[in-house]
Structures are given as C-alpha cells and as structure tokens.
Amino acid sequence: MPSFDLALFVPLLAAHLISDFALQTNSMVRSKDRPLPFLLHILITGACAYLLLGDFSEWRIPLLVVATHGLIDLVKIRLTGRLIDDLPAFIADQSAHLAVIFAISAIDWSRIGLFEPWWLEQNPVSYLQTLAVLSGLIANTLAAGHFIAKALPRMLSTDPQQLHQDSGLNGAGRYIGHLERILLLIFVYSGQLSAAGLLIAAKSVLRFQKANESRRETEYILVGTLLSFTVGIVLAFATKQLMQ
C-alpha cells in the first residue's frame, strides 16, 4: 500500500476505534436503536475522522465515513435488534467498518483534488506512528475486551454468572486483561518475545492455582486467559506491522 494510502488508512482506523470503543458508552450501545443516540454516535464518528485526517477544508471524506458507518449500524440494528452481546453480529459489524476504511484508503483522492492534510508537510511519519500506537492500545484493551467478553461464553456454552466465584474486586478482571495485553504489545514491539512467554506462563500458573476446585471453573478461567493472550499477541503483531 503506498504511503499516501496510509495517510488515509491510519487516521480513519484510529477515528473508528476512538468513536466505537473509547467514546461510545454501554448506555449508548443499548439505546442506539433510538434516533438521538444513533445520531450522536455517527456525528462523533464523523468528527473524529475530520479532526484526525487533518484536512480542515475537506468535508467529503468525513461525510462518506458518516454515511457508511451509519448505514452499517442501521443494517446491524435491523437484523439483530438489540442483541448487543451477539458475537457474530459484533464480528460482522467490525469487519464491515474495516472493509469500508480499506476501500476509502484505496482511492487516489489526489487525482480529484481532495485530501491535503496539514501534517503531510510537517512530520507525517511521527504523526501516523502516534495514531498507530493509539489504535493498537485501544484495539488491545477496549476492542479486545469486548470481543473476549462475547466469545468466551459462546465458545464454552457457559454463562459466567453461573460459575461459583467470589465477588473479587469490582472490574479487576477487565483491568488485568487490559494491562496484560498492553504488556504483550510492549514486549512484541520491543522484540522481547521471551518476556511475553514468561508473562503467559506466570499468568496461567497463577490463575490455575487460584481457581476454584471446580474443574468447570478452572477450565473456564484458563481458556479465558489463553484467549486473552492469543488476541493480545495477534493485535500486537498487527500494530507492529502498521507502525513499520
């Protein structure tokens, strides 16, 4: 992919991740079938694209992002209703958004006199790498957390609420997952794969030892841990390739 295409792809990817995961709350997701929350979400999506693209005289690309993003979300709402925890709907929705970003990035907008961001004349490499790091952090924490929360119960046909567990710290499991995947991102980018292996081994042993005597609960915890590491490693390598 030519570098000019990356000048579109990286900002649009960062804008999507920020608007869909960092700035969209659970209450907004649950009420997206109502006009005002839906409109607010797509306006935030367009604003993020407009600001990160950096061409403040060009509104047609952000408008295209708003139109396609809204259309995809409308189709998802019509087909799935309010099943926000449905894994296939989540995968299809995110795949469609990424496909649109790839398609927009494949267009040579310069031939029709569009897209001349201010940062192309400054330090485009540093700007794009910063957005790539930001995208990797959001993907490895918030986006990966949503995926794992939907995938794990479906994979094991088990409701986490039915397992016998103590209450623990409120939200601690989610934050532990975020931190471990951030560490994996750091280890993979710095080439310290042995440190990543040590982290996986230490975490797996600790979770196994602390698990309840119930074999069902123990296996659920281990599968969740290994799924988190798998997603984290894949996204870490993807982020590293994007930054290069």
Rank of each mutant, 00 (worst) to 15 (best):
L6F: 14
L6A: 04
L6R: 11
L8S: 06
L8G: 10
F9R: 15
V10Q: 15
V10K: 15
P11V: 12
L13S: 04
A14F: 15
A15M: 05
H16L: 00
H16D: 01
H16M: 00
H16C: 04
L17F: 06
I18Q: 08
I18F: 11
S19D: 05
D20I: 06
D20S: 06
F21M: 05
F21R: 04
F21H: 11
F21P: 10
A22W: 08
L23S: 08
Q24H: 13
Q24A: 10
Q24G: 10
N26Y: 09
N26L: 14
M28A: 13
V29A: 02
V29P: 05
R30I: 11
R30K: 15
S31T: 13
S31E: 09
R34V: 09
P35E: 13
P35V: 10
L36W: 14
P37L: 12
P37Y: 09
F38W: 12
F38H: 15
F38R: 04
F38L: 12
L40V: 09
L40H: 12
H41A: 12
H41F: 06
I42C: 04
L43A: 05
L43T: 04
L43V: 13
T45G: 03
T45N: 03
G46Q: 00
A47Q: 11
A47Y: 08
A49Q: 03
A49V: 04
Y50C: 03
Y50M: 09
L52G: 04
L52T: 04
L52D: 01
L53W: 02
G54C: 04
G54H: 07
D55R: 07
D55M: 03
F56R: 06
F56Q: 02
F56D: 02
S57K: 15
E58N: 05
E58W: 07
E58D: 08
E58A: 14
W59F: 11
I61A: 15
L63D: 00
L63S: 05
L64R: 07
L64C: 03
L64P: 09
V65Y: 15
V66N: 05
V66W: 06
T68Y: 03
T68Q: 06
T68S: 10
H69Y: 03
G70Y: 02
G70M: 00
G70N: 03
G70S: 06
G70R: 01
I72H: 13
D73K: 00
D73I: 02
L74V: 13
K76N: 07
R78F: 07
R78H: 13
T80D: 00
G81L: 10
G81V: 08
R82C: 00
L83H: 04
I84S: 11
D85Y: 09
D85P: 12
D85M: 15
D85R: 07
D86Q: 11
D86A: 10
L87P: 13
L87G: 01
L87Y: 08
A89V: 01
I91P: 05
A92G: 04
D93V: 06
D93F: 05
D93P: 03
Q94E: 15
Q94N: 11
S95C: 02
S95M: 00
A96W: 01
H97A: 08
H97F: 00
L98V: 08
L98K: 10
A99Y: 07
A99E: 08
A99C: 14
V100I: 15
I101Y: 09
F102I: 15
S105K: 12
I107N: 14
I107E: 14
I107M: 14
D108W: 06
W109R: 14
W109P: 08
R111F: 14
R111T: 14
I112N: 05
